[in-house]
């Protein structure tokens, strides 16, 4: 009887450790995926010389705000203060940012939905970047919902933090600072971005 109880406890411990590791890596994958998307935005801006429109920038802000969810989980894991409640709060932030961010993407899709409209900027695999942004927001909403449903099982234990997470966080830092510099150059001394930017206002 005692052997059966200890075997069950061992199985629970293994599955909870696996869940905690999975939860931590899920937060890292989320942050890395949006790092990739934000870096892709810079590729369009600087390599293809396509200026981001105001709605594009708004979608980037919502992506950055959504990233604060997994960042909250990663930071608390590093400190060893992560709890299920904090995990839910983090993904709640992501869910809210993705929900409102998706309305900005839908708005931009609707602006160019008329047949014959070439859309704004280049397309990737036949789909414009703002439509990809909507796809990313929907994925984040589904992902965050799953993380919240299984928050108890997926809460990291506080021992999972590693160098990969540090690199991921600093990559996010570089992208935030780069976005700040880019928006200063793009907006210049104006209060709002022009609806169809064609130059860096700071230098004109």
């Amino acid at each position: 009887m005692e052997k059966t109880v200890s075997a069950t406890n061992a199985t629970h411990a293994t599955s909870s450790t696996l869940g905690a590791t999975l939860g931590f890596w899920a937060a890292n994958i989320f942050l890395f995926a949006y790092n990739f998307v934000l870096a892709g935005g810079f590729f369009f801006q600087f390599a293809l010389n396509e200026f981001p429109c105001p709605l594009c920038m708004i979608q980037r802000y919502f992506m950055m705000l959504a990233c604060f969810g997994p960042l909250y989980v990663i930071i608390n894991t590093k400190r060893g203060t992560i709890t299920t409640q904090k995990m839910i709060r983090g993904y709640g932030m992501s869910l809210l940012a993705a929900l409102v961010g998706s309305t900005a993407s839908i708005r931009q899709i609707l602006l160019h939905i008329k047949p014959g409209d070439p859309g704004y900027g280049s397309a990737v695999f036949g789909i414009h970047t703002y439509t990809w942004a909507l796809v990313s927001f929907v994925v984040v909403m589904v992902f965050s919902a799953i993380m919240m449903i299984f928050a108890k099982e997926l809460t990291p234990k506080g021992t999972e933090y590693n160098a990969v997470a540090t690199i991921n966080v600093w990559l996010f830092a570089i992208l935030i600072v780069a976005n700040l510099i880019a928006i200063i150059a793009l907006e210049g001394f104006n209060f709002l971005l022009p609806s169809d930017p064609t130059k860096y206002m700071l230098f004109h």
């Binding site: 920038m57 950055m64 705000l65 976005n179 700040l180 928006i183 971005l193």
Partner: peptide, 8 residues
């Protein structure tokens, strides 16, 4: 936009 990015 600059204010928002500064706060972020």
């Amino acid at each position: 936009d600059i204010i928002i990015m500064l706060i972020i």
